[in-house]
Structure formats: structure tokens, C-alpha cells
């Protein structure tokens, strides 16, 4: 008897009960629903460098208790990959979330986001009737002016070391190399090889050209610190911010000053 320990393709602990596409301006968005309980939890995408499978550690457990909706971001997974950078404004992602809720027949949801780049905040601030609660895990919201990156993104550099990998030409030359470097910084805990491998695999489900379009859309300064603070002030639903103290990508202070304090002030 021989038992196979290695699977060529990942199986899931929990498969969706329903799946479908929502469509906005010709862009098709793939969504999944798990479980049936109330309320609904919406697990939106983050940067399209990964897709909805990054919630794999949450879906099976949460779906035992409540209805869970996930969707792939424009640019990765089974959703379309528009080539125009304008399609990747974070406001588009927020509108995608509404379209997915509509398609899944969900009036109102608790929004649990990871590394929110603005879409979850926009959703909660501008569509309070659709958002029953907001959880921001390690939000990537620009609550103050970002520091100037150590290397120019668009220039050809003479090094690939460290932050020099955050560079258009390096992405086009060695997308996998960037993914491995980036996710090794996401997972600073020991024994994270599996999580890194998963994320690199999801990153390889899209490509550098798509990510470059998305990056340009995001870098358009649609959400400057002033706008973020203004949006935080408009949030009225119960809000929780979870921030790791060893976060090497998002300044833990962002969650504290921008998220927790202002949001709880807004809520109160």
C-alpha cells in the first residue's frame, strides 16, 4: 500500500456553497459564498498581488457560524485583469464589493479586511447602510505622508538588493524574485515557509504587467492622508483594528493613530 502525501494542487478544507460573477463596466469579478448563518461577513481582497485564497485560514471556521462572502480582486484569481490603470483606483475595489454583495443577495455585511488600501474604509464611510461592522487587520492606509522610497520605482537600477526590488524593471525581469522577497517580509514569524510559498503561488497567478497597472492606479494619490482622516471620521459602525507589533511593511503606528484612535472617536 502506498499513500500519497503530496498533492499536485491544493485541496480546500471547505468548498463554497455558491459561486458566481458580478460585472462592472465589463470587468467580471468572481465571488464565492460559504455557509448560511447571520450576519454575513465580507472578506474583501487587498492588493491584487494575492487573491481570495489568502483567507483560507478564516473561511472554514467562520463559515461554520455565519455566511462568508469572498471575491477575487480585479487583476488576480478568477476575476478579469483590465489593462488600464484607471480601473485600479481603490474606489473601484469598493464598488466591486458592493456589486458582489448585490450579486450574492446580501444587504449588509460585517467587513473584515486585511491590509486595507482604502476600499474597506470607503465602503464603511460612504455606504453605511451596507456595512454592519468594520475590522481592519494591519491596514495599509496612508494616514501620514509616506516616506520617499529609497529607490526610484521607474528608473533602471544597478542593484536588485532589498528595497531596490520595489522597481518596475525588476518586477518585469523577475516577478517571482520580488514575490519571494516581499512575502518573506510579510511573514516575520519563524516557521512561515508554507505561508510564504502559498502567497508566492497566488502572486504568480497574476503577472507583473497587471500589477504595474494596479500599482499606477493605487499610486495616483486618490487617498491622501487628509482624505483618509476625513473618511475615518465618517465611519459610524463598530470598528476594530488588529495590528501586529512586528509588522515590517505597515508602520504599526498607522493602525494606532489613523485607525484605532480616529475610528473609535468617529464611532463614539
Amino acid at each position: 500500500m502506498t499513500l500519497t502525501m503530496t498533492a499536485p494542487e491544493q485541496t480546500r478544507a471547505r468548498y463554497p456553497d455558491q459561486e458566481g460573477w458580478a460585472e462592472r463596466d465589463g470587468v467580471r469579478l468572481f465571488w464565492e459564498r460559504y455557509g448560511d448563518g447571520e450576519p454575513t461577513i465580507l472578506l474583501p481582497p487587498t492588493w491584487e498581488i494575492v487573491h481570495s485564497r489568502f483567507w483560507k485560514g478564516q473561511v472554514p471556521y467562520l463559515a461554520r457560524h455565519t455566511r462568508v462572502v469572498t471575491f477575487d480582486p480585479r487583476g488576480n484569481g478568477r476575476s478579469d485583469r483590465p489593462g488600464d490603470y484607471e480601473a485600479y483606483r481603490r474606489r473601484e475595489f469598493a464598488a466591486d464589493a458592493l456589486a458582489v454583495l448585490d450579486a450574492a443577495g446580501v444587504d449588509r455585511a460585517v467587513v473584515v479586511s486585511w491590509c486595507d488600501m482604502g476600499e474597506a474604509l470607503i465602503l464603511a464611510a460612504e455606504h453605511p447602510e451596507r456595512v454592519a461592522g468594520l475590522m481592519l487587520i494591519a491596514p495599509a492606509l496612508p494616514v501620514r505622508e509616506p516616506e520617499v522610497p529609497p529607490y526610484p520605482f521607474d528608473q533602471v537600477l544597478d542593484t536588485d538588493e532589498g528595497w531596490a526590488k520595489e522597481n518596475r524593471h525588476y518586477w518585469l525581469r523577475d516577478w517571482r524574485g520580488y514575490l519571494e522577497w516581499f512575502f518573506s517580509r510579510c511573514f516575520t514569524e519563524p516557521h512561515s515557509t508554507k505561508q510564504i510559498e502559498d502567497c508566492v503561488g497566488w502572486g504568480l497567478d497574476t503577472d507583473a504587467e497587471t500589477i504595474l497597472a494596479g500599482f499606477r492606479g493605487w499610486a495616483g494619490k486618490e487617498l491622501d492622508p487628509e482624505t483618509v482622516v476625513e473618511l475615518c471620521g465618517r465611519v459610524r459602525c463598530p470598528t476594530l483594528v488588529i495590528q501586529g507589533t512586528e509588522d515590517k511593511l505597515v508602520d504599526p503606528e498607522w493602525g494606532r493613530t489613523g485607525g484605532a484612535t480616529r475610528l473609535s472617536a468617529g464611532h463614539a
Binding site: 500500500m1 502506498t2 499513500l3 500519497t4
Partner: peptide, 17 residues
């Protein structure tokens, strides 16, 4: 005795599988 071969497993499958 019976033999069970674990494909892809190393020396200490009791820890990894």
C-alpha cells in the same frame, strides 16, 4: 507484517504527517 509506504515522506513522518 504489513507495509505502508508514505510517498514523499522522510524519516520522521510522525512529526510531519
Amino acid at each position: 507484517g504489513a507495509l505502508v509506504v508514505l510517498e514523499g515522506a522522510g524519516h520522521i513522518p510522525l512529526a510531519r504527517h
